[in-house]
């Protein structure tokens, strides 16, 4: 039997035929669309390396069947920058040296973008730490990650103010 799933990935519409319903969103992104920026860490929803946005909300792509998301808009790390212009969260991660090996970084950045979309943490470092607890970093770059998220939050809040 065959199934069809329609997804918009980083703005581009895709219609994909699947011969197996077991395909997770993570495997679809990496193996079928060759978007390998999204990482497979634990594959069990514990590490956050596979975090992507589905209709603007961060989720673990390893624990989601692709078929379940028919019609959804997905944003991955590859879809954040506008050409050569990095997303403010990407800029902040570089500025604050918020990584060492980099494996968890796409998930950290997507999670941070999701956190800022949610608007619950504001400029409170404790709320940022709590909101980012679903992303593990084995190099323990947490101090830089929290600084980067707070910096990006300030940048985006400033942009919003200027636009208003």
């Amino acid at each position: 039997m065959n199934w069809t799933v329609r997804l918009t990935v980083n703005g581009e519409p895709h219609t994909l035929a699947l011969d197996d319903p077991r395909v997770t969103l993570l495997d679809l992104l990496r193996e079928r669309l060759h978007l390998s920026g999204t990482k497979k860490g634990c594959d069990r929803g514990q590490c956050g390396a596979c975090t992507v946005l589905v209709d603007g909300r961060r989720i673990n792509s390893c624990l989601t069947l692709a078929l379940s998301l028919d019609g959804a808009a997905i944003t991955t790390i590859e879809g954040l920058a506008q050409g050569d212009q990095l997303h403010p969260v990407q800029e902040a991660f570089i500025a604050h040296d918020a990584l060492q090996c980099g494996f968890c970084t796409p998930g950290q950045i997507m999670s941070a973008v999701g956190l800022l979309n949610e608007g619950q943490a504001g400029d409170d470092p404790e709320r940022v730490r709590e909101g980012m607890s679903g992303n593990l970093c084995r190099c323990s770059a947490y101090v830089g990650i929290v600084e980067a998220v707070l910096d990006a939050q300030a940048t985006l809040a400033g942009e919003k103010e200027r636009a208003a």
């Binding site: 956050g48 961060r58 624990l63």
Partner: peptide
Amino acid sequence: GASAQLRNA
């Protein structure tokens, strides 16, 4: 409970 990603789902 859980993480922000899991609570979103």
